[in-house]
């Protein structure tokens, strides 16, 4: 939980949620996290840790996959949001960029971006302004605005997906695994843009990421998930210095490279951790 000392406003508060798929599969076993206004929170963990499920629980895309939040609460600006449909949530400023890019392949880049403005009611001029803003942040997309999104490269598709979310004029973006399948310098580029958006436009980000190293460099706060539970949390720079995080997630250790013989103790320690 957030220490009461600092006075930043908590935008998104996920409190001890439990998620069950198809009424039988327990995926999240009590996840709590917070996102400050104007902050970047990283949600870390390996495959199957529950990062995507957490994000979908917040954006309410879960119900379409027969998942359900059975315990706990999710509030945004103090109001519960766990019964809202995704469209209402987008209107109130929370939008998710899904994992694996999910662009509309048969729509042009331009059209893709415009679908992001679907819920907006503030007139064509304002939407045009947002479009220019997105092209400003992603100059690569401007060159390809007329080509089908399905034919653009992986990096460009990720940019389309993020740009499309920005078109809804969001306050908070839930970004699911932006680094997936991208070359390291592209990952840097995308995280750089995210950081920029955060600092200049004041957009708050909750980023689910496997790439702990990059995510902790750009985030303010981090939460580490392990099989459906938060096992560690704190300010990003503290987490980066934490010996356990270093060892388990960054692949570094004080004693240099680990020998395979230590695997058993490694596993035991890790189990204890979770």
């Amino acid at each position: 939980m957030l220490d009461t000392g600092d006075n930043t406003e908590v935008l998104l508060d996920v409190n001890n949620i439990e998620v069950i798929y198809s009424s039988v599969i327990l995926v999240l076993k009590g996840v709590s996290l917070t996102l400050d206004k104007g902050g970047i929170t990283a949600l870390l963990g390996g495959n199957g840790a529950g990062k995507t499920t957490t994000l979908k629980a917040i954006s309410n895309l879960l119900r379409a996959e027969r998942g359900d939040v059975t315990k706990g609460s999710i509030t945004y600006r103090g109001k519960p949001i766990d019964r809202l449909d995704p469209a209402t949530l987008v209107k109130s400023g929370v939008i998710q960029v899904m994992e694996g890019r999910h662009v509309f392949e048969h729509l042009t880049v331009d059209e893709n971006l415009m679908t992001g403005a679907y819920t907006r009611r503030d007139g064509k001029a304002a939407i045009k302004q947002s479009l220019d803003l997105v092209y400003n942040y992603f100059p690569r997309l401007k060159d390809r605005r007329k080509s089908l999104a399905g034919y653009t490269s992986g990096g460009e598709q990720q940019m389309v997906a993020i740009g499309r979310a920005l078109m809804s004029n969001p306050e908070t973006v839930l970004l699911d695994e932006p680094s997936m399948g991208l070359a390291p310098q592209l990952v840097e580029e995308i995280f750089g843009i995210v950081k920029n958006l955060n600092e200049v436009e004041g957009v708050s980000f909750l980023i689910a990421e496997q790439n702990t190293n990059v995510a902790l460099r750009f985030a303010h706060k981090g939460f580490i998930l392990e099989s459906g539970r938060v096992v560690m949390e704190g300010p990003a720079d503290e987490l980066r210095e934490n010996p356990d995080v270093k060892e388990f997630y960054l692949g570094m250790s004080d004693k240099g490279r680990k020998s395979f013989r230590d695997v058993r103790s490694y596993r035991r320690r890790k189990r204890w951790l979770s």
Binding site: L61, A64, A87, V97, M98, H102, H106, E111, T115, S168
Partner: peptide
């Protein structure tokens, strides 16, 4: 445009609030 978006990808369409 929203119709075509839904045709392409249900989930993504939902995620942008369609």
């Amino acid at each position: 445009r929203a119709l075509r978006a839904v045709a392409d990808d249900h989930q993504a369409a939902m995620s942008v609030g369609i």
